[in-house]
Design a protein around this nucleic acid. Structure first.
Lengths: 138, 138
DNA sequence: CATCCTGGTCTCAAAAAGAGACCAGAACTC
DNA sequence: GAGTTCTGGTCTCTTTTTGAGACCAGGATG
């Protein structure tokens, strides 16, 4: 890859990368689910025990009712949480982690730990990036 | 919480949850970044070594140029990847993980493992959910 | 009778993502 | 020397997601 002494003509494709090597793997399934803005937050809340709809909403604070409903349904659909309806006076509903959902909390915990340890660095990087204009001098 | 023998009147707020307990914590910073559709995919690709823009695009396959550009910039802004421009003939650019970015790969790996082990269950849950109409009989 | 509470749904506006055309500028082709 | 190619981006337009907030059922409560 003569970078300093001549024209550059890379191989049209990296060796063995016929595209979608990663795009189609199961990771994507999971990431697309917990990768939305709210899933992890909800899961994290549910980790402490069953929660009712309204409580979850208030806990998270800035989630819209619409999104909460929908995210909860998606989570339920994927078997991560369980929805229980109680035939009480104003019918109440609560959500709790399934076994599967609980097992996801472990890897998630690592992520949370990383966040705690490194968010400072991320913030600093962000600041310095924002200070330096995109077209920075050599 | 008399669920079975009388009216339900929950406390307006769960004990100690003044909202945003979780919403404001560092986790959110991180999750909002890697929680988008592409970041992890890109990070995962970069794990194997420096990659050029076009290569990344072809590897991921179904990402739009626009999104790739933007996600890469965000990742760079957060100090997770490093962008290097080579003054070659058609100017070429490559991206690689920073040390910080690399350290994120560890927790991510757990997630990937979980995905591999459990995506089957998730798929089954999904199927059975889809088979059973929302208003299922008792 | 009017009001409150719960967990949702519906509609409408705003924001984000995807598709694809377009650009610079040197090198290579003919 | 005109035309094509290659690279990493940007710009505009359309489609999809998300957010805000009104509205609903229906028993309890005052």
């Amino acid at each position: 890859m003569r970078l300093a002494d001549g024209p550059v003509r890379l191989q049209p494709m990296p060796p063995g990368a016929d595209a979608m090597l990663i795009a189609k793997c199961p990771v994507r399934d999971v990431l697309d689910r917990i990768g939305d803005k709210w899933s992890v937050l909800i899961l994290k809340n549910l980790e402490e025990g069953p929660r009712r709809f309204g409580v979850l909403k208030r806990m998270i604070g800035d989630i819209s009712q619409r999104m909460l409903t929908q995210t909860l349904r998606d989570l339920q659909r994927d078997g991560l949480i369980q929805r229980t309806v109680y035939p009480t006076v104003p019918p109440s509903v609560d959500y709790r982690l399934t076994k599967l959902g609980q097992s996801l909390m472990d890897p998630l915990e690592y992520l949370v730990q990383w966040s705690d340890r490194n968010h400072q660095k991320v913030r600093k990087a962000r600041q310095s990036f924002d200070r330096t204009p995109p077209g920075a001098p050599a």
